[in-house]
Design a binder for these strands. Structure first.
Lengths: 243, 243
DNA sequence: GGGGAGAGATGCCGC
DNA sequence: GCGGCATTTCTCCCC
């Protein structure tokens, strides 16, 4: 029952998802290169031939390969060598497995995809529907017009019919956000052949340095928070803080 | 043997790592909000109380919680409810488990940390040691001097004793890289009180638009690739392309 | 496939 | 803690 190479091959052929817990060392070469000495890790090979390796601590995988990777497992004197190769991406991983604590595979059924709320897109939609969040008299133009000028979040006119470019950030606005806004304002001035275009950065917060840069260039900041839809869920959760 | 709430609690107390394979639905609220309908997923709870949930396809976890999260599992009419809460971060996840395909826990030992080569830092070190990669006569200044002016990758003088700011990118240089370089050049001009400072962007490639912006602002591009150390490993790997 | 930009980005280092 | 920035970033959209 421990013919792991055969079990792995069969599982992969059947598009099963494979879970391994083992002591191993790992070598990677591709976009960069990495070495990782002996230790206990969790290895996942998914139905789409994604490889993910986790150490017992930390958010992120320590090594990984993108979907479409090929695998080959061969016995060694002590343990096994698991080779992973993604030829189109020129990425390679060798996992030397010294001890297999546990091996599991199963066909997983999951047709659902996640829906996320509170993103930057939700922010821009909110502003399109409630333009007064930017300022009184602000009139966004239609979304079709926006796309003509690239990736501008919201384009509109103020009460004096001056063109306004709005850049949204769902969290902190930083240097990048300010320079992005500047690029868009320049782009609009050029394409429309006009000299006066206002730039507004809309976000919950802005860093002091970014705010200085914003003012230096004559742009403005407006405090706007991304919308939330699950307030009730939040309240229920906070009541259960005790566990 | 299927008293999962007790087994989970015991495992967490012992700082074991927990692997679950189950059919579940997931609700998240925190920095944003998300919903995910029924499906088979892999759930990992690590020794440091990180939560990671994977669908059977795709590189990235579909849901996750940072280290230091608290967990509570309670039985329901059909299945269990696994609640995860990180109070300092105001993040909450509810996982409704309808069927537990598999449950495993084990204390994992791993004292190793990964070493990565071919990063931007390796590039800057390479340029410090081989300044001619930028141009003949280029003389980098000491790293202590660099830090005084912030996050400039490499600062030096050309053969005419003109100050040069070098910004490195390990892959494609884009708009952001050019604007970063511009920020640094401006910063240096200001702090040193000089008018003429050259800016060089060093990377394997640059996008056409970024190159135009670079030229418009009077900066230069120099093709430089990040160093590689595992060439032999690469060659061996490419010979094994057949599997 | 490349370019551009968001992400529940994450993680690191510095102040 | 925030700020600034790299990341084997990943992912999506659009050209």
């Amino acid at each position: 029952m421990n013919a792991y190479p055969e079990r792995l091959q069969r599982a992969l052929e059947r598009n099963e998802t494979v879970l391994m817990c083992c002591n191993c060392s790992i070598r990677y070469s591709g976009r960069a290169e990495s070495l990782l000495g002996n230790g206990d890790r969790i290895i996942i090979i998914k139905a789409d031939k994604t490889l993910i390796v986790h150490q017992p601590e930390g958010n992120n995988p320590v090594n990984y390969m993108k979907p479409g990777t090929s695998f080959l497992m061969v016995p060694k004197e002590k343990g096994w060598l698991l080779k992973a190769a993604n030829l189109p991406l020129k990425e390679f991983i060798d996992i030397e497995i010294f001890e297999m604590h546990y091996f599991y595979s199963r066909k997983l059924e999951d047709s659902q995809s996640i829906t996320v709320a509170g993103t930057e897109e939700d922010m821009t939609n909110m502003i399109m529907q409630q333009p007064e969040l930017i300022e009184q008299g602000f009139k966004p133009v239609s979304q079709e017009e926006q796309t003509k000028y690239g990736y501008i979040d919201v384009l509109g006119y103020d009460k004096d019919r001056t063109l306004v470019v709005v850049e949204c950030k769902r969290f902190h606005a930083d240097f990048n956000a300010v320079q992005q806004l500047r690029r868009y304002v320049e782009k609009i001035k050029e394409s429309k052949g006009i000299n006066i275009v206002r730039g507004i950065l809309a976000a919950p917060k802005i860093t002091p340095n970014a705010e200085q840069m914003l003012k230096d260039w004559g742009f403005e900041f407006k405090t706007v928070k991304p919308p939330r839809y699950l307030e009730e869920f939040d309240k229920r959760q906070r009541k259960l803080e005790g566990f």
